[in-house]
Simulated assay, not measured.
Amino acid sequence: MSNAGLFFEEFKTALLTSVNTSMPCEVLAYNESTRTAKIQPLFKVKDKGYDPISLPPIESVPVLKQKYKVNGGPVQEYVPVLDRGDTVLVVFCQRAIDDAQNGQNVFPGISRMFSIQDAVIVGVF
């Protein structure tokens, strides 16, 4: 492979590994009243020439609730119960979710994209 080809291959790999989509995380703490958790990502990151390192814990991660209609009855809202040590699936939103969590249509003026700070817990493994 040429030097240019090698450069672009390494650049592509670096770019793709910097985009967070989803990953398993461990629950370190859960506040049921605010439906937020402190989590520890379970994937390590590695820069070329260095040892893998753990990502830092992520604070105040929203936990999705669920709405179900059971046996034709009224719609019921279910709040998740998470325990310390649970392994959860976390997704990372495409843009900053700070202003959109209240359900309004907003322009995410913050330039943050696919950040671990925009994590949302979607379920337990």
Rank of each mutant, 00 (worst) to 15 (best):
N3Y: 14
N3F: 10
A4C: 01
A4N: 04
G5L: 14
G5V: 06
L15M: 12
L16M: 12
T17H: 11
T17W: 06
S18T: 10
V19D: 02
T21N: 08
S22G: 12
M23I: 00
C25S: 15
V27I: 09
A29H: 04
N31Q: 10
S33I: 08
R35T: 14
T36W: 04
A37R: 05
K38F: 03
I39Y: 06
I39C: 07
F43V: 01
F43E: 01
F43N: 00
V45I: 15
V45Q: 03
D47S: 13
G49Q: 00
D51A: 06
D51P: 00
D51W: 03
P52H: 05
P56F: 08
I58V: 15
E59C: 06
V63Q: 03
L64V: 11
Q66I: 11
K69Q: 15
K69I: 12
G72M: 15
G72E: 04
G72H: 09
P74A: 11
Y78W: 13
V79R: 05
P80S: 07
P80F: 10
V81A: 05
D83A: 12
D83P: 01
R84W: 02
V88G: 02
F92D: 03
C93Y: 11
C93N: 11
R95D: 14
D98S: 01
D99I: 04
Q101I: 15
N102L: 13
G103E: 00
V106M: 11
F107Y: 11
G109I: 13
S111N: 11
F114N: 10
G123Q: 10
